[in-house]
Design a protein around this nucleic acid. Structure first.
Lengths: 331, 331
DNA sequence: AAAAATTAGTCAATAGGTTGTCGTCTCAAA
DNA sequence: TTTGAGACGACAACCTATTGACTAATTTTT
């Protein structure tokens, strides 16, 4: 701790309380009693300044200075703590975004604006327009993915609150999967399962690949995030899937995941291919190689792999997918 | 506990009783006798505030203030709890939710079949048809909810694999939120935020309420699962929401949740109502009551509450109560 | 059933307390 | 000399307390 003392001006700047008011608080309420120089100048320590800041934020919250001026600093700290979140949420809700818009490609901006104002309809419109302009797959690669990356970045840097991230996820997921629904392909289209293995909670990659594969003519069954290998395999077998697409994003170092992946390979029929993408797929490279998964690092590769597998892939097979009901469920 | 005393303004904000009314209760019924400053200002302790909250919720239940004002705080606490229990049990005995075992209602079967064969299109068709037959809200209450309950039960009993549960969640969510998108209401429709508080991972209740509210003419912003209170409040403020709908399902005993809920109440503008549903809402009854959340146990109640709030502001009530707990907005 | 009384919440007016800001004056520091 | 600090007094804006009167609903009485 330094024993630095500040003039009232500095104390005022640091605490946000005008020097005038600082004197008033001292005089009227005895809020604090700073040391003085020989010539009667006030000298404020770091503790003094902290106390001033606390008093200030409490008054901002509606507490009357007269009621709190004499409380010990520790109590003030608690009181301010109670309200800390208020300020946070207020502050964060005030400046939604601003600075980083320039760094966004123009095509992404309308969609980002829609997220910014939490408007699903606007988002849908933006994406529809992007679809027309860039094609569906172009919309995916040039708008949706950069958009989520940007939001993720802003979120990490604390420039965007989790609420926006959640909203964006929910809205985009609904938009993309909604399209999967309505595009759903003909009866003898190849079948792809999109899913995230147990422990991987980020669904977004799987959603995008679902949308992408669907637009490429696949019949897609999206199972969502964090499903154990046995479940994935079960679903694949039951639906006679041709491929399973996994997205690995976070965590990049799950010690259980390799075992899960190996088990998945073992349980899956050998003609069913595994295709893996996502930021963290690199971290599990060894295992992925071992199970002969095809890793892709971008959308183009993903399309390519899908096409290849469709032509001479581990599939072909009789497309006579007949409905199978669950043996067990109630009659 | 700190020995902090609050001004009447703060006491009013925290208890939800207008400052005016607080004085009336003191003067007419001697409901409580706060300390005073030398200049006769009232000073409220935390206990005082709690008592005010209790009195308030009891009056909301229909008790006359004159009858309960002189009861000791402990008795009030019991009374408030009893009321909540009676309400609960009345509701529970009324709709016995016989949706038990063996036969699920015929209306649900096509949708269940679709889930069973993991066919999104078929599911969509089944729900569309149910919509035509039962109306959108009927589809929600008579198909979607029983369906999810049924699947949840089968899952619990190990009769259905997680893959089906995941698939059903993803598909239903997309279907329901997709409809929210396209229905999105006009500019001056009331705004509802649907979300799950931090720690509550089950999104489904929030999704259904989003769909329901949207069909009732609300503008819905769905934020998805597990968002901290400050985020929820920030989003609500920013979007000028009229209500926030929370779904509590699992876990039923999160020790952090009550604090989260209290904080949410504090951060939200007091005119923003909180509406809570879900299987576990009962477990948090005390806290919910404290924050004056309106709990609902079925869809009908949900609609009712939405409508009431739309008509007389957030605090609906049997007796055309004041819609301003915020009488302190003096000015 | 109509009239009167009771109950509960709200309003308005007045008086006075509380708080942030301003201006002025004086004195120390640069 | 200019600038900033200290002290004092004044003041407007806001908050609080009290009183009495008003409204609307409910209950009691006639």
């Amino acid at each position: 701790m330094s024993e630095v003392r500040y003039s009232i001006k500095i104390a005022s700047e640091r605490s946000g309380v005008s020097s005038h008011l600082i004197r008033m608080w001292e005089k009227r309420y005895g809020a604090l009693s700073p040391d003085r120089t020989e010539t009667n100048r006030r000298l404020y320590s770091d503790e003094n300044v902290e106390r001033l800041s606390l008093l200030f934020s409490c008054t901002q919250e509606g507490h009357r200075i007269g009621n709190i001026a004499s409380l010990p600093t520790e109590t003030l700290r608690q009181l301010a703590q109670e309200n800390a979140e208020i300020k946070e949420s207020a502050r964060e809700s005030a400046p939604p975004t601003s600075a980083n818009e320039e760094s966004l490609p123009p095509a992404v901006r309308p969609a980002f604006k829609a997220i910014d104002s939490m408007d699903v309809d606007e988002l849908r419109k933006a994406l529809d327009e992007a679809s027309v302009e860039l094609g569906y797959q172009g919309m995916l690669t040039k708008v949706v993915i950069p958009l989520m990356q940007h939001i993720g970045r802003l979120w990490c840097e604390g420039e965007l609150t989790a609420a926006y991230e959640h909203f964006a996820s929910a809205a985009l997921r609904t938009y993309l999967l909604g399209h999967v629904q309505s595009y759903s392909a003909s009866r003898n289209a190849p079948v792809l399962i999109t899913v995230t293995p147990a422990g991987q909670l980020h669904e977004f990659g799987a959603v995008v690949s679902a949308a992408a594969a669907n637009s490429a003519g696949w019949h897609v069954i999206h199972l969502g995030p964090s499903l154990p290998a046995s479940e994935i395999a079960g679903a694949a077998i039951r639906s006679e899937a041709n491929m399973v697409a996994l997205s690995l994003v976070h965590p990049p170092d799950d010690p259980d995941l390799p075992a899960q992946l190996r088990m998945l390979r073992r349980l899956l029929p050998s003609k069913v291919g595994i295709i893996v993408g996502g930021r963290s797929s690199e971290s599990y490279r060894r295992t992925l190689q071992e199970i002969q998964a095809q890793t892709v690092t971008d959308m183009d590769q993903f399309y390519e792999t899908l096409n290849a597998s469709r032509r001479h892939g581990p599939l072909e097979s009789n497309r006579g997918r007949q409905e199978k009901t669950l043996g067990h469920a109630n009659g």
